[in-house]
């Protein structure tokens, strides 16, 4: 761990300006992932700008029926917020399935979205990793990759994104509000995250110095019937092998609309658009769910030791949709 300077941000503008102007600077939220990386040598900033005290700790209604979640809202507070619980249960469920109570109490919304892969090679500076050191190679490709990607990976990187929250937000079509030196911009979360391609060092499209200030949830009435199913090795306190965030609107046995996103399968939270398309207008039956899941997973390219994720993802999609639609029927 190399020494670094520390500043507590006075306001967003100066924080963004400071970090943008200094290539070695980084934003500090709660630190639940960054401090990991400092200790391991994965990150070596020369300045931390602490943004955890900026006034982004509110959950507020948006005109048009949506909800704005401030960037520094703690995971626990977001999960237990009455509006979130009632209108976006998949968000609460995703958060509550992540980490532990004592981590959720400090971890922030933006920090959760910006956390980095738990690929063991990324976290071990003694092994090659293109995400950590571009051009050094991907150790996971031929190594230990049971937890790794089956969709959208490249030969440069097969890591998966670890966030549960981001999967739910991706299913909902949330929009991330970002502040930069050139001003503010809104980025649909689906566009925030990147596939690895040949530049896996970039998890997101954010530029150095850009700061997430809020996440906007759309008014999506069907989300009141949504859920998040996480499959993992341990019953608790473990990252996903596969997870599914889903919301479904069924009328008289037919799917009117549906949202599905997958976690644990790709470099980014994976919006299952093919499955959604296959399901719209289809009967709400196991067969239709299975066909939709298979349509989504047709493009899966598993590695030597994670082919199980394909049937696991398929079965979990089916089980989650079955559970939601069964619940919906009176």
């Amino acid at each position: 761990m190399i020494p670094f300077d520390y500043q507590r941000a006075e306001d967003t503008r100066s924080a963004v300006a400071t970090v943008t102007a200094r290539p070695g600077a980084a934003f500090l939220g709660a630190g639940t992932n960054l401090v990991d990386h400092l200790k391991l040598g994965v990150a070596a900033p020369d300045l931390l700008v602490d943004v955890s005290h900026l006034p982004f700790d509110m959950i507020e209604p948006l005109a048009g029926g949506g909800v704005r979640i401030g960037a520094t809202v703690r995971n626990s507070d977001l999960a237990v917020d009455p509006v979130i619980r009632q209108r976006y249960p998949m968000v609460s469920a995703a958060l509550l399935s992540g980490a532990s109570g004592q981590l959720r109490n400090v971890a922030t919304t933006a920090g959760n979205l910006m956390q980095r892969t738990r690929c063991p090679y990324f976290q071990d500076v003694t092994t090659p990793c293109n995400k950590r050191r571009p051009g050094s190679g991907c150790s996971a490709l031929e190594g230990y990759h049971r937890d790794h990607a089956i969709l959208g990976a490249s030969r440069h990187c097969v890591a998966v994104h670890p966030s549960d929250l981001a999967v739910a937000l991706t299913a909902l079509g949330a929009v991330v509000q970002v502040e930069g030196v050139k001003g503010a911009r809104s980025i649909p979360i689906i566009d925030l995250y990147r596939l690895p391609d040949d530049a896996p060092q970039h998890d997101t499209v954010l530029e150095h110095g850009e700061l997430i200030t809020a996440v906007d949830l759309p008014a999506l009435p069907m989300a009141t019937r949504s859920t998040y199913r996480k499959v993992r090795d341990r019953a608790s306190y473990a990252f996903a092998l596969v997870s599914v965030a889903a919301a479904v609107d069924v009328e008289r046995g037919t799917v009117r609309d549906v949202r599905v996103a997958l976690g644990g399968v790709a470099h980014k939270p994976w919006r299952a658009r093919r499955a959604e398309e296959a399901l719209r207008g289809a009967p709400a039956t196991d067969d239709a769910f299975r066909a939709a899941a298979e349509a989504e997973l047709a493009g899966a390219r598993p590695l030597r030791d994670n082919a199980f994720k394909v049937p696991m993802a398929r079965n979990t999609i089916v089980a989650t949709l079955r559970e939601l639609t069964r619940r919906e029927e009176p």
């Binding site: 520390y6 639940t32 980490a99 004592q102 400090v106």
Partner: peptide, 22 residues
């Protein structure tokens, strides 16, 4: 690294790990 909970305290009234807090 926030993976075991042994460092948990009540921090400003809430339970929190302290190994990942600067």
């Amino acid at each position: 690294h926030g993976q075991c909970g042994a460092c948990t305290v009540l921090l400003d009234g809430r339970r929190a790990t302290t190994c990942l807090a600067l």
